[in-house]
Design a protein around this nucleic acid. Sequence first.
DNA 1: AAGTGGTCTAGACCACCCG
DNA 2: GGGTGGTCTAGACCACTTT
Lengths: 237, 237
Amino acid sequence: MAEQHTKSERLRQHLVDVIDQGLEPHSKLPTERDLASEFDVSRLTVRRALDRLEHEGLVYRVQGAGTFVAAPRITKSVELTSFSEDMRARGLVPGSSVLVTETISAGARLGAKLRVSPSDDVFHIRRARTADGEPMALEDTYLNPRLFPGLIDNIGSESLYQILETEYGMKIEWAEQSIHASVLEPEEAQLLSAPPFSPAFYVTRTSFDAQDRPVEYAESTYRGDRYHYELQIHRTR
Amino acid sequence: MAEQHTKSERLRQHLVDVIDQGLEPHSKLPTERDLASEFDVSRLTVRRALDRLEHEGLVYRVQGAGTFVAAPRITKSVELTSFSEDMRARGLVPGSSVLVTETISAGARLGAKLRVSPSDDVFHIRRARTADGEPMALEDTYLNPRLFPGLIDNIGSESLYQILETEYGMKIEWAEQSIHASVLEPEEAQLLSAPPFSPAFYVTRTSFDAQDRPVEYAESTYRGDRYHYELQIHRTR
DNA sequence: AAGTGGTCTAGACCACCCG
DNA sequence: GGGTGGTCTAGACCACTTT
């Protein structure tokens, strides 16, 4: 676990542990004032920890009554995760096999996505992604070589995002994702061990760092019979 | 506009107005301390207003440097909207034609979704939804007749959500939505004027009110060639 | 070195829920 | 009426960016 360096984050983590270790839904948590004195912090610090837990859906608050453990909900709202995290969240073991690694000329489309000149080089990685050993998706990832020198020689089965973060200090902050309905072309179907022309998701994603620079552009085709989206959506207030 | 009753909300609204009235992206806003003294509030109150604006993507903050107007982003994160709102947000004119209205026995599946007995009645409404006059989706909506007496006789071309809210005081707060890849069955294809077996989204949605009671269950089939999802996703921290 | 946002404190008053 | 969460204050120190 990463070190928690703020008091409110340490308190939040403590409360997560307490909740996970067997508190029933709708159990009442200690009052904000009690938590403040017990952990020797101000009430505002307690409220910051609870704000985050409420936002994450682990607790709910009722004015005048207290703070309570939320009923676990099956679906979560959409979050930015890697394929590996996504699969683990679904209770599946993620895997990956690299089909292609190459350096190609960006061209107009990829150049625009990654904000490089069309004549510049980009890395291209094609991988088959698996869940519990079964083919789940084909993924073509494109990266700017200037940001990740030498990367293409170090691709293994580890998480690409992990490598970007640990080796290059690159943290992806947000992404634009587009989801289309599609069917598997025969070639894709064969690579995914699925019937040709069966339903599929075609997903494109451009990922950005904290300075809003495009870091990665990826096109993925997911088997529609094995993958779907579950989301919880709220009225914005 | 609804009345803003907290200081931080009034300040937030004021800043929204200022930003909308012509501030360029990356313009620097006044410092938190300046805003605090100008509006005669504490710095924490300023920070709460800015927190919300940052969350909404209108501003970004750089520690040690300042707070800046964010570049407008094309895509928005997923929000809970009706078909009509959704289409209007895409710049299309929504329409609807009612194909079926009937009262049927719930059965096990619908009973579970709407939390009524399998032998209870439910309303069923089948509609073809159009955008700019072109067929976009088929939608089967199921409702609990006890919550909406007489509704089935009043279905017109107006927004169903509008009727639920104005006639029955029902406000939908959140929903669980599931999105599957699919293809159009010949019957659906004909109703949607699309080729049979062409790509489609199959979407189910259960909508809940503020008390977490299921209000509506809907199954929709969207033409994949005319509809897709665009979302902006963020790392949760 | 000065200025900015990030975190935290100790205390206050209000709106709301419950016995 | 007593306790709870919701909002707010005035001030402090820290981490970081900019000059």
